[in-house]
């Protein structure tokens, strides 16, 4: 602490030097684009990689090319796009929830969004919804109700602990109701239940993406802008308040944004675990916890992770495919254990 009149020193980084977070972000974007191309070319119908540009932008000249083009445009690309959108949304909200709860083990599932959505879908199946089309709104409704309930009861308690405990309680309630519905289900319903509980990207269509993609990405942009508040939260709730972030409105805004992003995603893909938990953690280990760079990098890394998982799910047991939730848990679970064993939180 020299005297207050010490002349200003200049800190190392020159304005021309790109921040590390930006370099990593650009690299991740390049990886994502490459992966999207590779993934859309592979599966039960193999499409030669070199043909992709011509199939996308040209007119087909043979029956084989027509088939490839149809597979690419109607099956692969919507599915890969859903993987990108869902991966980005689940991971970004995971990173935000971890900062809000100041706990690296937190994820949207923790405050009841995922289990609420699952309960909604399971209830719709077992109570005899006439068509699969009822699953999505039921799941969306379930997540929003569970999250609002969690938020309104949780905010009666001081601090973040109340919200967390309420989330645990709501998860228990949803879990037991799902168990009850599973017990009541007949064989046909059980098959749909399993399929839905494990998560799937197979239902992707351009018409559902036309709503889901702009909705998710738009809300993600709003969430990205909260990086200062999330950084301040890492210092503590009092400190965030001292830095001008009134805690109640900030918490309300964050919980609402997360529910609005995750609810429709759960409705579209079922329960896909671990992406929102492991990926933000991994990015934080690499880049540090500064949310200015953590959030956008986590978003792209999440898109990569889910696209990769979906690709593996489709190529591992051709011509069948694995449920994507199984793949993310199979990779994510052991990976998470390895992280835990390797260094303390």
């Amino acid at each position: 602490m020299s005297s207050p009149t010490t002349p200003a020193l200049t800190i190392a980084s020159s304005p021309l030097q790109l921040p590390r977070g930006l370099i990593v972000l650009l690299a991740l974007l390049a990886v994502l684009i490459l992966l999207v191309l590779v993934s859309s070319a592979s599966g039960a119908v193999r499409i030669p990689f070199a043909e992709l540009p011509r199939l996308l932008f040209g007119t087909p000249t043979s029956d084989e090319e027509l088939l490839w083009r149809n597979v690419l445009l109607e099956v692969r690309l919507p599915r890969v796009a859903l993987a990108v959108v869902a991966g980005a949304g689940l991971t970004l909200t995971g990173a935000a929830i971890q900062a809000l709860f100041r706990n690296p083990l937190a994820e949207p599932g923790l405050i009841g969004i995922s289990s609420g959505g699952a309960l909604g879908a399971v209830a719709a199946i077992v109570l005899g919804a006439p068509a699969m089309i009822w699953l999505a709104p039921a799941a969306f409704l379930g997540s929003v109700v569970a999250t609002s309930l969690c938020y309104h009861i949780g905010k009666r308690q001081q601090g973040v602990g109340g919200l967390l405990l309420t989330g645990v309680a709501i998860n228990v309630v949803c879990g037991s109701l799902i168990g009850l519905f599973t017990y009541l289900a007949d064989d046909n319903q059980l098959r749909s239940l399993t399929f839905w509980n494990m998560g799937s990207l197979a239902g992707a269509t351009w018409s559902s993406l036309a709503f889901l993609a702009p909705w998710t990405l738009g809300l993600c942009l709003l969430l990205l802008r909260q990086w200062r508040a999330l950084n301040a939260l890492l210092l503590g709730e009092r400190e965030a308040q001292h830095l001008g972030f009134a805690m109640k409105p900030v918490r309300r805004k964050l919980v609402l944004l997360v529910a609005l992003i995750v609810g429709p995603l759960v409705a579209a893909t079922g329960v896909i675990g671990f992406v929102g938990l492991v990926v933000p953690h991994l990015v934080r280990l690499t880049l540090g916890a500064d949310h200015r760079w953590l959030l956008p990098n986590a978003m792209v890394a999440g898109a990569i992770a889910l696209t990769l998982a979906d690709w593996l799910a489709r190529v591992a047991v051709i011509p069948a495919e694995l449920p994507i939730g199984i793949v993310t848990s199979l990779i994510g679970g052991p990976f998470f254990l390895w992280l835990l064993a390797r260094r303390a939180f």
């Binding site: 200062r228 950084n231 301040a232 890492l234 210092l235 503590g236 001292h242 830095l243």
Partner: peptide, 23 residues
Amino acid sequence: VLPQSPSLSFDLGVREIVAAGAY
């Protein structure tokens, strides 16, 4: 305000913490 015994939940760089004062 500088509260008593401030803590940090995730590891931030020193520069980012000091820059938070300008939020």
